[in-house]
Amino acid sequence: MKVILTHEVTGLGTAGDVVDVKDGYARNFLFRRGLATAWTKGGQKQVDALAKGREVRAVKSLEEAQSIKGTLESKAITVAAHAGTGGRLFGAVSTADIAAAVQAAGGPELDKRRIEVPTPIKTTGTHSALVRLHPEVQATVELDVVAG
């Protein structure tokens, strides 16, 4: 089944890409989460609109992405979260929390959809997250999660 991605999906493509996936994956995962729409002949207009939006939001050049990577990897990012005894958090640290903490630390404004956390952050301590800045540039951000 051909679908048009409306958001970036890891391992599949970015917004505006037309990809061929299995019917069940499209119906049960992509459509339900609003990550894709079915491809139609008129869907090409939607693909063009998504591509224009992606160009506006994307980091314009590789050099700019490299400088942002250097800034992110050199900053100490502290995330305050509600924690109980033993350092266990009530809930987990979300990508939106990470984006807000980066901006509060004087870093650039990040799109929460470009932040990937390999395992859910449910304890205090040091953790890492991956930020996709450009198709060729990824930054690893070290997070210090504290009870707050």
Score class of each variant (00 low, 15 high):
Thr85Asn: 12
Val145Gly: 09
Thr37Ser: 04
Arg27Met: 10
Ala100Arg: 06
Val146Gln: 12
Lys22Tyr: 08
Asp144Val: 13
Thr71Ile: 13
Ser74Gln: 13
Asn28Glu: 05
Gly11Thr: 13
Lys69Ser: 14
Ala36Val: 10
Phe90Trp: 12
Lys112Thr: 06
Ala105Met: 02
Leu143Met: 09
Ile121Thr: 10
Phe31Pro: 02
Ala15Tyr: 01
Gly24Trp: 01
Val3Phe: 00
Asp144Ile: 08
Arg88Lys: 13
Thr140Leu: 04
Tyr25Ser: 11
His82Ile: 15
Val102Asp: 05
Leu89Val: 05
Glu63Asp: 15
Arg57Cys: 07
Glu73Asp: 14
Gly148Thr: 08
Leu30Ser: 04
Tyr25Asp: 10
Gly86Ser: 12
Thr123Gly: 06
Leu30Pro: 02
Phe29Glu: 12
Gln46Thr: 15
Ser61Val: 13
Ile77Lys: 02
Leu130Pro: 00
Glu64Pro: 02
Val145Tyr: 04
Gly13Met: 05
Ala58Asp: 05
Thr14Val: 12
Gln103Ala: 15
Ile115Ala: 00
Ile115Gln: 00
Ile98Met: 02
Glu55Pro: 00
Ala36Gly: 09
Ala38Gly: 12
Thr126Arg: 08
Leu5Ile: 11
Asp97Trp: 01
Ala147Glu: 12
Lys75Pro: 02
Lys22Ile: 07
Lys75Arg: 13
Ile98Val: 15
Ala81Tyr: 01
Thr71His: 06
Leu143Ile: 14
Gly42His: 07
Ala129Pro: 03
Ala100Leu: 06
Val79Met: 07
Gln44Met: 08
Arg57Tyr: 06
Pro118Asp: 13
Ala129Asn: 04
Val137Glu: 14
Ala58Trp: 02
Ala65Asn: 09
Arg33His: 11
Val3His: 03
Val146Phe: 03
Thr95Arg: 02
Gly24Val: 12
Ala51Phe: 04
Ala38Glu: 11
Gly43Ala: 12
Gln138Met: 09
Gln103Ile: 01
Ala129Thr: 07
Lys122Gly: 09
Arg132Gly: 07
Asp48Ile: 05
Ile121Trp: 01
Pro120Asp: 14
Ala92Trp: 00
Glu63Tyr: 04
Leu89Phe: 08
Ala99Phe: 01
Leu130Cys: 11
Ala99His: 01
Glu73Val: 14
Asp17Glu: 14
Gly53Arg: 06
Leu30Gln: 05
His82Glu: 15
Gln138Gly: 04
Val117Trp: 01
Glu136Asp: 15
Gly34Leu: 05
Arg88Ser: 12
Val9Ser: 06
Asp97Glu: 11
Ala83Leu: 09
Gly84Glu: 10
Gly34Phe: 02
Gly53His: 06
Gly16Leu: 01
Asp97Leu: 03
Ala80Trp: 00
Phe31Ser: 01
Ala100Ile: 04
Arg132His: 12
Leu5Asn: 06
Thr37Gln: 09
Thr10Gln: 06
Val9Asp: 05
Glu73Ile: 14
Glu116Thr: 14
Ile98Gly: 03
Arg132Phe: 10
Thr37Met: 08
Pro108Val: 15
Val9Gln: 03
Val59Ala: 03
Ala76Lys: 09
Gly125Leu: 03
Val9Cys: 07
Ala15Met: 08
Ala49Met: 09
Gly16Glu: 07
Gly70Met: 07
Trp39Asp: 15
